[in-house]
């Protein structure tokens, strides 16, 4: 009963988070990283035309991709927190609304949602493309994030809640000062996963008029007809970003679990 269960929340679409135990040089992560970096350096050096010119058009796109990702994940975390709380609420109406939101969002492909929100918004208000993309992405990811929050909150032993209530905390204070601060540790790793998944999914916004990495590449390819070379570089850039991010998340995850071992 004393053993604290650090619940693992499995959320599928992120990059594989490297296992901290694999510290050897021959882990899949290292091979992928060394390969990616070598190709990103060697190709432009050995064949500047077109690889170097491709590299030149992408940086602005990287910035946009990061902008969309960070804004969307921040908004999705806020939506997710309220959705997660709504899903465990004893208030029937709130519970139903939150559950309905999750059901609807999970049942519709992201690309369809993206088009729908983009054009639906466009009918009533004129919002910048980037903002429309952020709204659509966070609306979708908020639902997934809600499930992460719900699982994280439920992973905290109910005894913690009872102890707080018995001291005189109301349920909101109990959530804010006792349950959520503990749930973060369970929630953060899957949020990291979602972050990587979201970053990859932002490539979908290139279909709207948002000039992210993929959009930049497509524009370049359609002018130069170097489709193969362009998409090679685009894939390598995405891979490099997700490899680095997944390592960072793995380090963070490790730090968090060492807190528990202290």
């Amino acid at each position: 009963m004393q053993e604290h269960q650090v619940a693992k929340i499995e959320v599928g679409d992120g990059a594989a988070i490297p296992n901290q135990a694999d510290r050897g040089l021959v882990s899949a992560w290292w091979i992928a990283l060394v390969g990616t970096v070598s190709l990103l350096v060697l190709l432009p050096v050995l064949k500047p035309d077109p690889y170097l010119s491709i590299l030149r058009v992408v940086p602005d796109g990287i910035l946009i991709t990061f902008q969309v990702t960070i804004l969307s994940i921040a908004l999705a975390i806020v939506i997710g927190l309220f959705t997660g709380l709504g899903r465990i609420s004893s208030n029937r109406v709130i519970n139903l609304v939150a559950s309905l939101y999750v059901e609807v969002v999970r049942g519709i492909p992201l690309l369809v949602q993206l088009f729908y929100i983009y054009y639906a918004l466009g009918r009533f208000v004129r919002v910048p493309d980037l903002l429309a993309a952020v709204i659509a992405m966070s609306f979708c990811y908020g639902a997934y994030m809600g499930e992460v929050f719900r699982a994280g909150i439920k992973s905290i032993d109910y005894g913690q809640t009872e102890a707080a209530l018995s001291l005189g905390f109301n349920s909101r204070q109990t959530m804010a000062w006792v349950v959520l601060p503990q749930a973060w540790r369970t929630i953060l790793p899957p949020v990291g996963n979602e972050f990587i998944a979201l970053l990859k999914d932002t490539s979908l916004v290139s279909i709207l008029a948002v000039a992210d990495i993929l959009r930049r590449g497509r524009e370049y390819a359609s002018e130069s007809f170097n489709y193969f070379e362009t998409y090679t570089m685009i894939a390598l850039i995405y891979l490099l970003i997700t490899l680095v991010l997944s390592k960072l998340i793995s380090i963070m995850e490790h730090r968090l679990s060492s807190y528990e071992r202290r």
């Binding site: 032993d157 005894g159 913690q160 102890a163 707080a164 209530l165 018995s166 001291l167 006792v178």
Partner: peptide, 14 residues
Amino acid sequence: RMEVGMVFQSFNLF
């Protein structure tokens, strides 16, 4: 509840 302290079987320290 502030007037009534409670001690649990499983301690439930934060």
